[in-house]
Design a binder for these strands. Structure first.
Length: 430
RNA sequence: GGAGAAAUACCCAAGUCUGGUUGAAGGGACCGGUCUUGAAAACCGGGAGGUCGGGUAACCGGCGCGGGGGUUCGAAUCCCUCUUUCUCCGCCA
């Protein structure tokens, strides 16, 4: 969400930005919101003046009553009644304009960084760096679900009966590996100075509306029947909403937190749920990192956060690449974003395992997250979020990159303490 | 889940019964000063948060006492509703 004043003063820039994002259908909204804003301010001045008049007369009545001049006081009532009649019309308009303006402001995308590559969709995303040497062994790497099966580590059939498509049972070493990577990720981020947090897994509608767009909500969020509660799609939702309507102290910034949560997603839309594997599912778990900082620090934090993810994957011997999101693939609140993709030796390709984003002050303005400077000035903070890692997707990368010809899977050194010291896990039938 | 109490500015807190000179007493913290080698204490003085709007500006105005709505000429104060906190009971991992 942009500042309406910014839109007023930078009309062409805002339009240019919309074009860059290939959302030309939103172009008329800019002029519309500027007109609405002008109308709104006109009405507000009128209404403010009337309210002033009403307050004055009412005060007057009060004084007269106190002095015992009851008749005189009561005779002024009619005036105020008339003012109130006039006012009730204006206030309706005032309210209407406010709502309309807010609605449009929610639709106008955040300004994107100057160096974001221009492109319509994710096919135009730009690889900027590969880290780690991809190794494709001369033996075949099975599909991840088949690797898991060989360990008796997955049961999607039962999950289908119990919960439906898009769910899974993980078992034995595979389940343990799942917990191990999460624990490792947690400790990794704690070592980077982040505060570990376990947030609510359900949030109210006002929190939901603060952290995401209406379309996102419809496509992602599960609602609890009969309650004003939604299952979170990522802990970022509860973590950022935590600071809603708060004025933070400057010396408490940056706030750096790493949160764990299960994530629930309807995955309505383009891709749908895949039949066999655990790549796209309704429920998964995630270690997340969020930063709330001063505006001039957000770009530095963005780089740092992105590199933390890369470092973590490298610690687990998984080759990755950074893929910068192009303008059209960037969600409306984002200033810039970069996906981290892990190498799949089975497909000889990279696949998405995380996403790092700088939302500048767009999310903070929506939620009212500010900080107070030493001079007493209140400034919207910048918010950033990034995936640390998400099993089960992480398990796909881990299993494929550490798969041996005999079907066993090596455990990276960093994970061994979380796996009872095992150097590798071996399929049940061997 | 049941019964009761409460939410006032950065913090504590008066005002709510009995609506009007209360946008809010008092204190703490804060800022300036006196004293002091410096600091603390004491004393003197100072301004009060947030947000929207008008104005080149000085400045002016609206909203605002947990959120939303209502009654009224007028609401911190009365009514409804939601949220949160506390106490007691029940239930539970």
């Amino acid at each position: 969400m942009l500042d309406i004043k910014f839109v007023r003063e930078n009309k062409e820039k805002v339009k240019e930005n919309i074009k860059k994002k290939f959302q030309d259908k939103k172009l008329p909204l800019v002029d519309k919101v500027i007109t609405l804003d002008e109308e709104y301010r006109k009405v507000k001045v009128k209404a403010d003046n009337l309210r002033k008049e009403r307050n004055d007369i009412s005060d007057n009545i009060g004084s007269l009553m106190r002095e015992g001049k009851k008749e005189e006081g009561l005779s002024l009532k009619d005036k105020v009644v008339k003012i109130n009649e006039e006012l009730s019309v204006l206030e309706k308009d005032e309210h209407k304009y406010e709502e309309e303006i807010k609605e449009i402001m929610y639709l106008i995308p955040n300004m994107i960084a100057d160096d974001v590559p221009i492109g319509e969709d994710d096919s135009k995303n730009v690889e900027i760096e590969k880290i780690g040497e991809p190794i494709i062994p001369d033996y075949e790497i099975p599909y991840h679900a088949d690797i898991m099966s060989s360990f008796n580590g997955i049961d999607k059939e039962s999950a289908g009966k119990v919960a439906g498509n898009g769910f899974y049972y993980l078992m034995g070493d595979i389940a343990r590996l799942h917990s191990a990577v999460l624990s490792y990720a947690r400790d990794f981020m704690i070592d980077k100075g982040f505060t570990y947090c376990i947030p609510p897994y359900m949030i109210r509608s006002d929190a939901v509306n603060g952290v995401m767009s209406f379309e996102e909500k419809e496509a992602m969020m599960y609602k609890i029947e009969g309650e004003d509660l939604y299952l979170i799609g990522t802990s970022e939702h509860s973590m950022i909403a935590k600071f809603k309507n708060q004025i933070l102290k400057e010396n408490n910034l940056p706030i750096t937190m790493t949160s764990y949560s299960p994530c629930f997603r309807k995955e309505v839309g383009s891709h749908g749920i895949e039949e066999r594997g655990v790549y796209r599912v309704h429920q998964f778990e995630k270690q997340e990192m969020i930063v709330i900082c001063k505006p001039d620090e957000s770009e530095t934090w963005y780089e740092k956060m992105l590199n933390y993810t890369v470092e973590l994957f490298r610690n687990l011997d998984i080759p990755v690449r950074k893929l910068v999101c192009c303008s059209g693939d960037l969600a409306d609140l984002k200033y810039r974003s970069c996906d981290v993709e892990a190498f799949s030796p089975r497909q000889n390709a990279y696949f998405e395992v995380g996403s790092c984003s700088n939302l500048t002050d767009a999310q903070a303005r929506r939620l009212g997250i500010k900080y107070k400077t030493e001079d007493g000035e209140k400034i919207y903070a910048h918010t950033l979020n990034n995936t640390v890692l998400t099993p089960p997707r992480m398990l796909i990368a881990l299993l494929e990159n550490n798969y041996n010809e005999d079907g066993s899977v090596n455990i990276p050194v960093a994970l061994r303490p979380y796996m009872g010291g095992k150097e590798k896990i071996v399929p049940n039938n061997k």
